[in-house]
Design a protein around this nucleic acid. Structure first.
Lengths: 388, 388
DNA sequence: GACTCTTGGAGAAACGTATCTTCAGACCGG
DNA sequence: CCGGTCTGAAGATACGTTTCTCCAAGAGTC
């Protein structure tokens, strides 16, 4: 007791009325700080009586362990960065699209459930902000090729999991949709509904989503023998989308079905169709990729492809925390991702092979805009009942 | 140099291949760690030559100061909590409504601009998550009366600024719209457009927004001599809104104009009106509170009240950081809030008076749904040209 | 030449926790 | 009676900064 009391005495003279520290608790309980730490953290070998007594004293003193000190000592902050990449020169697309909002929400929730909190950090943030925060790991949304930020993070030993298959930057793991399969699915769906010439509304940026989707479309055209009909525009510019939709329907080789890669494309295409006197779905079949449920209420309702951002967000965070906690994902201790795991994930062992990736399924929500036969049906599964 | 070299030597034997620390930089540059710290942080009295040499060495070694250690030492983490309150039993309304998404985005941006990052923390989070994070301050969105979380934060000395005038919990400062003025404005606007009986669609929860708005409506009715016509529903339940909208228009004393307090009310009311064969705006004038621009594209476009979440988010964060940095908001050093400041903010001096509040203006975006005369006009200022 | 300033920089003490090591004593079998 | 094991707990160190205090030497000043 004497030592603890001495320390406490010293402190009380040097500082006044500050928050109670572990030493104060130790002194008040008549034990050492080791015992306090052990009692509060459920470690060490202590009789339950001591444990509860210490806890009670700590409670009475309103003791709150210093997160900073704990982080310094343990090397764990309980903080995960959520990086939102910026489109073009736009400062900040976070929550701009429903996809990001949903994904961020699910990620926050999943992290919280495992005791971590999320720090929202645009990739364009000042470097001093980044380096001033103790991060246990980072989620990166849709990193561009050769993202210097990701590279530096990875090099400095911070686990990085990306939403979107990374181009050339090393990551611990990544999660993405099977964009190729999704596009092919939609094209088949439109063909079955009677489409003869399917057009595409796509973006000019080089992110994986845009690239894979466009390539899948072009490949399908080649295979089926259809001339590609597509227009591109900078996806981050909301005004440009309407213009591109107009361009697409104004072409001499006007498509009789269109798939739009971005969320606002549905309303833009619908408006353009109206301007050209095209009826949907009679004259024009429409599908777009969107997480917004406004398309259930448009006239007519529009078929959408959902990328399942909630599943993605949850999976990304779980993979990241697994990596942080050093869990072997094969063992029983690891948290199982919810979606189907097409690629068996392996955690990076120094310099062997590509980082493990997980492909998540998408969901096609079929509505009136892509059905000629029975426009009364509103929602149906994407494939015939026999499909997996 | 000897001491530094010794320390470096000791360390290199005990640990291998870890990140470079300040000691390593000091040893490599042949100076003391004090000098390194001063050089890197622009403090102390050092000739530029030494400064740049140290910086260069640090760069070469890839030195990144430990955020945890800095936080422990300085007591500043550069982290701000963003608390999203939960509606009813719903887990998590963050980004649910456009208001929160916009507000959070603006807050993140503003914080980043001043060197802080935001940690998203639902009020329902496990306590261990809260206490495990070193927060310099917290933004609380719409705290309920007697929020225990806010009370504890405030008591433990963490500055708290709330979006929404707090009920009974102590905060450092708060920001809110002038909801009473906004409602009165809308009611006047509808009256001028020819409404004889104005109805209200409101919520059952007790948050400030709902309470003040409803009270303003009731007061106006009393003053004008109109019998109140309103329906309430739990705002967090999206399905209940449509039902309540239907109830309101099914009443025997059916209103000829309705103001809906929540974002989805516009589409719900429009759908209900259609079901009852009511034309908007001919038979029914419509206004709702929303940040979504879908109401510019509905048929007809709907007049909305914007609470200006971006301004709110920016102001809240700036007030919080002012408090964290101990800036007297009256002095030139303080960051000026952008909006009009109806109450002169004073920072809390122990136990005197209520916390300083700032009222921000709202904006009425007038569209066809609330105008009988000239439905062609789409957007106009809320008041007559003479108004402030 | 003794004195004050000023400049450049080093030493060492925190910050508050977690944990490794050590240690005294109790208990126990032979 | 003695060595060994187990329990309960204290001591000390390290985590990596920032910053307060102090000192040496050079530069002026009278």
């Amino acid at each position: 007791m004497t030592a603890a009391a001495n320390q406490s005495g010293r402190r009380s003279t040097s500082r006044r009325l500050e928050r109670a520290g572990i030493r104060d608790v130790a002194a008040a309980a008549g034990v050492s700080i080791t015992t306090v730490s052990d009692a509060l953290n459920g470690k060490g070998r202590l009789p339950d009586e001591t444990r509860s007594r210490v806890r009670e004293v700590a409670e009475r003193l309103g003791y709150r362990p210093s997160a900073a000190a704990r982080t310094l000592r343990t090397g764990r902050s309980g903080l995960i960065g959520l990086t939102v990449t910026t489109y073009g020169e736009e400062p900040f697309t976070f929550t701009e699209f429903a996809y990001f909002a949903e994904m961020a929400r699910a990620a926050t929730s999943a992290a919280l459930g495992r005791g971590f909190a999320l720090v929202v950090l645009p990739a364009s943030s000042r470097h001093d902000v980044w380096s001033n925060i103790a991060l246990d790991g980072t989620v990166v949304i849709d990193p561009p090729d050769q993202d210097p930020l990701v590279t530096e993070l990875y090099r400095s030993g911070v686990p990085v999991v990306s939403d979107g298959k990374p181009g050339n930057c090393p990551v611990t793991a990544w999660v993405d949709n099977d964009h190729e399969a999704a596009v092919l699915d939609i094209l088949d769906h439109l063909s079955e509904a009677g489409a003869r010439r399917i057009g595409l509304l796509t973006g000019t940026s080089t992110d994986t989503y845009t690239r894979l989707s466009t390539e899948a479309y072009l490949g399908w055209c080649r295979r089926v023998g259809q001339e590609p009909v597509y227009e591109t525009y900078p996806a981050h510019d909301p005004a440009a989308g309407a213009v591109a939709a107009d361009r697409l329907l104004a072409r001499p080789d006007r498509p009789d079905a269109v798939y739009g890669l971005f969320d606002p494309n549905g309303t833009d295409l619908l408006a353009a169709a109206r301007r050209y006197g095209l009826r949907v779905p009679e004259d024009l079949l429409l599908v777009c990729c969107s997480e917004s449920d406004v398309y259930a209420g448009t006239e007519p309702p529009i078929t959408t492809l959902s990328l399942k951002p909630r599943k993605i967000g949850t999976t990304v965070v779980n993979l990241l925390i697994d990596a942080i906690e050093g869990v072997d994902p094969g063992s029983a201790g690891g948290h199982r991702a919810e979606g189907s795991r097409l690629f068996p994930p392996r955690f990076r062992t120094a310099g062997t092979g590509p980082p493990p990736g997980t492909l998540m399924p998408t969901e096609l929500i079929v509505r009136a805009s892509s059905q000629r036969r029975s426009p009364r049906r509103t929602v149906s599964p994407p494939r015939s009942p026999g499909g997996g």
